[in-house]
Design a protein around this nucleic acid. Structure first.
Lengths: 231, 231
DNA sequence: TCAACTCTTTGTCCTCTAGCAAACTTGCGG
DNA sequence: CCGCAAGTTTGCTAGAGGACAAAGAGTTGA
């Protein structure tokens, strides 16, 4: 296997404060792996053997209820750590990670986590920052689910995806990974039927343009209004 | 001010691995404070100047939406840290903390957080454990809100409070701090009206006995069934 | 090129529960 | 002891959105 290039990690928050030599060390111990769309990176309840860093693609972190319904806990974008159970002293993964599109990730054995945090100044700090942000996002979702109507939640979910992974195209801003109506319903706690109706209505109003697994937001501003954010 | 007794901290998870001398040091720097029911400990958005440990009583951590609605993010029981913004490198409190009953808490300036985690072996570990648990609880609530009906959510909320703070009385198990119908609605994303109707129905079925601000669960098992947990 | 899937759209029905309104109860402060 | 505020109960109504059903469209693979 050829050596990984150091530029992969330079500039990513968890590693931004490290020196070249340190990054070299870290990379030499990383296991890179490619995942096709739909492939699992790890599974809920299984032993947390490795922690991961997404280099390219998108990951959905999913939880399955006793009733068999799925809900999407989190979207991971390139540059983010995920499956960081060791940071919380957990020994199993609390959810399942699935590639939303073809993805490339590095991973390390969990036993290296203490070493990373102790040895590399700033790694722990950045990791706990990330954790804090996720805690905040979850809080936001709880609030939304508890107080907002379905339409607002779906609008907010689209905006979140656009913000996190929007790529500009001529019509507007496109969500950079495949999303189905069902996926959106799993993010917002509704049914795919309702999501479909909403998207159809918004399409008619010229707010979005959507095809199969593919959504372009043509009028982000009106979506913001729909999401119910006070100015 | 007389010295605080060391036994206050001995046995609490964050400090369980410390020696007497260390506990003495920590206590000497703590500021104890009493709060009446309804008093604020800290307010959302304000500078996070101190982190806190609840010794006695119960704390509600509350978030207010733009629309003015409140939702209860978290309940804190004696022995738990709260307002630990510094652990996540935040410099403002993400939510408001209010005493649910008369409470006693210690607090320390946030600048001591790095010292605590560095100096006292196990403090950081235990703190991040706590954080992991809270993350898990939030995940559970998101799942509930997204997939369960109101009745199941209210049943689950009651059970959670009973588990966290249940005290045995002759009729059954009593929630150890004052709770209003409105409070429960703020935990479950419904209205106080609906909660009132549910409690009335359950009272009729002999599952709970409730008075003003006060709830006793007389048949926990049937409540578990209502909450929809699969066996 | 056909078959099987997966994803999407649309229609209809019906339940749950939010919203509104009003009365009642309890407890506290003056 | 009274009056007021906070908390609770209950009735009524309308509407959102879930459940079910069925058909259409796009993709994949044999």
């Amino acid at each position: 296997m050829s050596k990984l290039d150091e530029s992969l990690l330079t500039g990513l928050p968890p590693f931004s404060r490290l020196e070249r030599g340190q990054i070299r060390e870290i990379l030499d111990q990383a296991l890179p792996k490619r995942y096709d769309e739909g492939n699992e990176i790890f599974h809920e309840g299984h032993d947390a053997e490795r922690f991961h860093l997404l280099l390219d693609g998108y990951i959905r972190v999913v939880k399955t209820t006793e009733g068999g319904e799925q809900i999407i806990a989190l979207h991971i974008s390139p540059g983010q750590l995920f499956g960081i159970a060791p940071a919380l002293n957990r020994d199993t993964y609390p959810a399942t990670a699935v590639a939303a599109s073809e993805s490339l990730a590095l991973s390390w054995p969990v036993r290296m986590w203490p070493e990373f945090t102790a040895k590399y100044q700033g790694f722990a700090t950045e990791s706990y920052n990330t954790l804090g942000q996720r805690l905040g996002e979850m809080q936001t979702r709880i609030t939304e689910l508890a107080t907002q109507a379905v339409e607002q939640r779906v609008a907010a979910a689209l905006l979140r995806m656009v913000t996190q992974s929007g790529r500009k195209v001529e019509e507007g801003i496109e969500i950079a990974f495949p999303v189905t109506r069902r996926n959106i319903s799993e993010m917002t706690g509704t049914t795919l039927h309702t999501v479909s109706r909403l998207l159809s209505a918004w399409e008619k109003d010229g707010i979005v343009h959507s095809t199969r697994k593919h959504i372009v937001v043509t009028d982000p501003h009106r979506l913001v209004v729909l999401s119910g954010v006070q100015g």
